[in-house]
């Protein structure tokens, strides 16, 4: 049905493994995003591609109860990314991915704090996984 293993011969993902240099992080969200992407892409010594990204996130309150209390928060994030071939300095792939995580605001202050921090970390992981899927798709078209 036309599917081939991404890391198989026809998949092309092997060309990216350990060959992509991810842009250095500036914020904690970047840090988690880079850590996740580098653990999935591998980090080699001779990168052939550079991955640039910009992450943004906004928090929305929700689950408002009848007595005006916020019981849920949603963190909506987007990451715009570009993959540049280092040899020819041309953009070979890019786009924008988006994701959201949410957490409850009903516990104590300590519970709410760690839930919020974990939600932010998970958003970075989700955005990195979405970019990873796009990279696998791009590698397939590059390989053709």
């Amino acid at each position: 049905c036309g599917f081939t293993p991404a890391y198989g011969p026809g998949g092309g993902a092997g060309a990216l493994r350990g060959r992509v240099a991810v842009q250095a992080p500036v914020t904690k969200a970047d840090f988690d995003f880079v850590a996740r992407l580098e653990s999935r892409l591998g980090r080699g010594e001779a990168p052939a591609y550079d991955l640039g990204y910009a992450i943004s996130a906004t928090r929305q309150s929700g689950g408002i109860t009848a007595d005006n209390e916020t019981t849920r928060y949603t963190l909506r994030g987007t990451a715009t990314w570009t993959l540049t071939d280092r040899a020819t300095a041309t953009r070979v792939a890019g786009g924008e991915v988006s994701a959201f995580t949410s957490w409850s605001a009903t516990g104590t202050t300590v519970a709410g704090l760690s839930a919020e921090d974990d939600a932010a970390r998970r958003l970075s992981v989700m955005l990195a996984d979405q970019v990873m899927i796009r990279l696998l798709a791009a590698a397939a078209t590059l390989a053709r």
Partner: peptide
């Protein structure tokens, strides 16, 4: 258990080893 009472289940922690936030 003070900081791990509000647990979420989503695509990011479907494959994490410890899903407690704290």
């Amino acid at each position: 258990n003070e900081d791990s009472r509000l647990v979420e289940f989503d695509e990011a922690n479907l494959f994490s080893l410890n899903r407690f936030p704290g």
